[in-house]
Design a protein around this nucleic acid. Structure first.
Length: 212
DNA sequence: GTACAGATAAACT
DNA sequence: GTTTATCTGTACA
């Protein structure tokens, strides 16, 4: 299996978000391979999207969003967790897709080890809790700030094609206080590996939004 | 099952 | 000094 080509990411951000569902996020390291099927994503699009980090303009932190498609944008959130994005569209159009949840496929033991490092007491983690959140999947795959601005086409960190999912659902994005009117979160409807499952029932479902 | 407090550091004002 | 695209343990139903 090879990485998705750069042209895949140089498209409408919502289309890329939708199409990434069912693909596999893979990270090869000296400790082994960890991989998971992408089941939940969010689109962040342009300086006019108030929830996009680029809404604050181009800074040291947001520079990757303005760069080439097919590169990563990783940042630290709440001082403890990392969030992994893939940059979409051409240079100068600051937009990206946040990967929010994976269904573990390969390297489950490695994922469990990495995740356990972050927990205090606690028993063994259930398979569904390994990567069902943006911070969790970064921990499980060993993604840190050093993977910011990585070229996902030529890197141990990459996205590979996978079987398209069945029905998908679009809802407002999670964890933000602005831009909640845009239904730019997308997840595999039947997946048991989606984040914040307790919210999913009350959120409205809409057809695929217009392209951006 | 739901609700809440607290952890913790980089970037930005 | 403030903000933050989160997660976890504890408390309670």
């Amino acid at each position: 299996m090879s990485a998705l080509p750069r042209s895949y990411y140089d498209r409408d951000t919502l289309a890329v978000a939708r199409d990434l569902l069912g693909c596999t996020l893979v990270h090869d390291t000296p400790r082994g391979r960890a991989a998971g099927r992408i089941v939940e994503v969010e689109a962040y699009h342009g300086e006019e999207d108030p929830a996009c980090h680029a809404a604050a303009g181009r800074t040291l932190r947001t520079a990757p969003l303005y760069g080439h498609p097919g590169f990563s944008y990783v940042y630290l959130i709440y001082g403890m967790y990392h969030c992994f994005n893939v940059v979409t569209r051409g240079e100068g159009h600051p937009s990206a897709v946040l990967v929010r949840a994976l269904e573990p496929v390969e390297g489950l033991d490695l994922m469990r080890e990495r995740r356990a490092l972050r927990r205090r007491g606690a028993g063994p983690l259930a398979e569904r809790d390994l990567a069902n959140g943006p911070g969790k999947l970064c921990a499980a795959l060993g993604i840190t700030l050093e993977h910011n601005r990585a070229d996902l086409i030529h890197s141990p960190l990459r996205v590979e094609a996978g079987a398209p999912p069945g029905a998908v659902v679009w809802t407002p994005r999670v964890g933000i206080t602005v831009g909640t009117d845009r239904f730019w979160r997308c997840f595999v409807k039947d997946s048991t590996h989606v984040s914040r499952s307790h919210l999913n029932r009350v959120l409205a479902e809409v057809p695929r939004p217009a392209t951006v």
